[in-house]
Design a protein around this nucleic acid. Structure first.
Lengths: 345, 345
DNA sequence: GTGAAAGCGCTAACAG
DNA sequence: CTGTTAGCGCTTTCAC
């Protein structure tokens, strides 16, 4: 036994507390974990030592021993997209209520990055994972993840071949409803803009659009349909071409909020006689002139539900896998109910 | 020694791999960590075993041993706020490049929740923390956090009394510039709307607004200044009262994007003769009619810079603490450069 | 009530 | 080049 003590470690451990309080390691553990079988005397001594030393339990050590991490992972396209940022916030809130923390990451639409992130999270032994699966995601890999113990919930897009809870918005029905609304207002030439075919929601929405047309006896015209990721598309040129065609559309259906923003930006400079309806609401849609009519989806509800389902699994629920479809709401604001030059000065 | 083996554990460990490959634990560790001094023969055997067993290193065990977690924490007001969601995305990107994951959480403007989150993160031994400090945050607590080993970077708002890197936007100068712009366009009665006094950026922007007025010889009129959190404020009534006053403003300066959205929503229904300028850009500001002139701040740059600074600290940089002020940009779109009824149909 | 000892899965230190 | 041993900070037996 040497006299000189080593300099205090950056974070005190339970051993330090035990030494300080003059009790055994186990007693400290009991106090920290709120267990009984500790005399009030020792309980107080330990409590005081914890205070004095500023002790906080090292979660990693606990987790290593216990095998649970009180952490969930969230992987989606891009937190900066309003739909996903709302969803993220809802997941965070549920996690916080349950004393879990959330590892969050954007896959940037890149399946390789998505996989890397999921692996990173998996190696940290997250209790569960909420994933908005990117197009080309590796299914067998996800299945392995599921089997190795972390629960999985998919949001926004389903993944075929994996038995996991899924929370979706009923895109097809929403798009059908929206298109029908335009038809009801006299439109028969309706252009459709959506993400490319690899994106589940894009094809679902197109299917809904098509279903509405067919129900109304309007022939589906492929030249009115444009499927590309708007971020990189030459939106202005596309719009120009469509509107200059022989039999131009009288209405536009935008398949998501990214497209809506880009389309509105282009349309603002023109004076075409158009109606407009967008899938997914966005901030200021009500401040534009005319207000933008949308099929709204509740991103918070998706996040909350997904998190609830996940925690149900984490806590051992073995009920059959669920696939929830959330309904959309048509919000009329003017842009789809009138005609006239669009967003003109 | 019993004959029957227990059923396979959910995740294989290095020991399992070692047994499978017929080598020692340490050899596996060497392979996993990409170290040399392993014969090609064994290297391949181990690699195959890893494949076969689907082994992935348990990060918690590694972290416990090494004392580093490859995790950073991010605590801000609300990920659903566009400014913060952009910032979050930037932080995620930097972290990903550096093989770190990010624990993200919204404090919901609640200092108690903020503290709880930081403690939760601290207990997980995050290597570093990026914090947008909520109004009443506990300074001594943060200081303890800093001393116990995690690096700290503040964003958006500084914290007095703690020696930590800080990345800010030059709010005061931005507001001064914006107000000056309005003055240059002939306005002398300019209303100011901002968050309440507890919010650093709000008072800074008000100070900039005031400085511009005074530089132009315009008396500061407190009845034109409104400091409240817009989420809960009766915006419509406030606006009505202000515009109905004896000497009403001819221009409005909105202190942040939350206020801008709410103000624009109210102004849309009215036909007042007003100019408008907002602090912080927002999506569709260019699609509105007139386009909204703003003082833009670069949220991504804030996030990127903060993350860079944090990683510099994490990797041992002991240079003096930095306080970075990012410049803002005036973007003219029409709303501040003209007069006439506002967003009128 | 309390504590000693073992061990979670990994890496560091030191042999061979 | 390879393996053995110890130990990170905690929880879990299982004695006392």
């Amino acid at each position: 036994m040497v006299d000189a003590l080593p300099p205090r470690r950056s974070r005190p451990t339970m051993n330090d507390v035990a030494a300080h309080a003059g009790v055994s390691l186990k007693t400290v553990s009991r106090v920290v974990n709120g267990l009984d079988h500790v005399s009030t005397d020792k309980f107080e001594r330990v409590t005081r030592s914890i205070e004095a030393l500023g002790f906080r339990r090292n979660e990693y050590a606990r987790q290593l021993r216990q095998g649970t991490t009180a952490t969930i992972g969230l992987v989606l396209e891009d937190v900066a997209d309003p739909f996903y940022s709302l969803l993220t916030r809802a997941v965070e809130d549920v996690a916080f209520e349950r004393d879990h923390v959330v590892l969050a990451a954007s896959s940037a639409e890149d399946p390789v990055r998505a996989r890397a992130l999921i692996e990173l999270f998996g190696a940290r032994g997250v209790d569960g994972l909420i994933i908005a699966p990117a197009g080309g995601i590796d299914v067998s890999f996800l299945r392995a993840e599921l089997e190795s113990g972390s629960s999985l919930v998919f949001v926004d897009r389903p993944v075929a071949g994996i038995d996991a809870d899924t929370v979706l918005v009923d895109s097809r029905e929403g798009a059908r409803k929206g298109t029908e609304h335009l038809i009801r207002h006299g439109h028969r030439r309706i252009a459709f803009f959506g993400d490319d075919e690899s994106v589940y929601t894009a094809t679902e929405r197109r299917a809904g659009y098509r279903a509405a047309l067919e129900a109304a006896g309007i022939p589906f015209d492929d030249s009115l349909v444009h499927m590309t990721v708007p971020a990189t598309a030459p939106v202005s040129e596309i719009v120009q071409r469509v509107l200059a065609s022989a039999d131009p559309p009288t209405a536009i259906f935008s398949g998501n909020n990214r497209w809506s923003v880009r389309l509105l930006r282009v349309l603002r400079g023109r004076s075409d006689d158009l109606a407009f309806l967008g899938f997914d609401d966005f901030e200021l849609s009500d401040v534009l002139n005319p207000g933008i009519t949308v099929i709204a989806q509740d991103a918070s509800a998706v996040g909350r539900l997904a998190a609830d389902l996940l925690f149900r699994r984490i806590t051992g629920d073995t009920a059959p896998v669920q696939r929830v479809q959330l309904a959309t709401a048509l919000i009329e604001r003017g842009s789809a109910e009138r005609t006239g030059p669009f967003l003109d000065r």
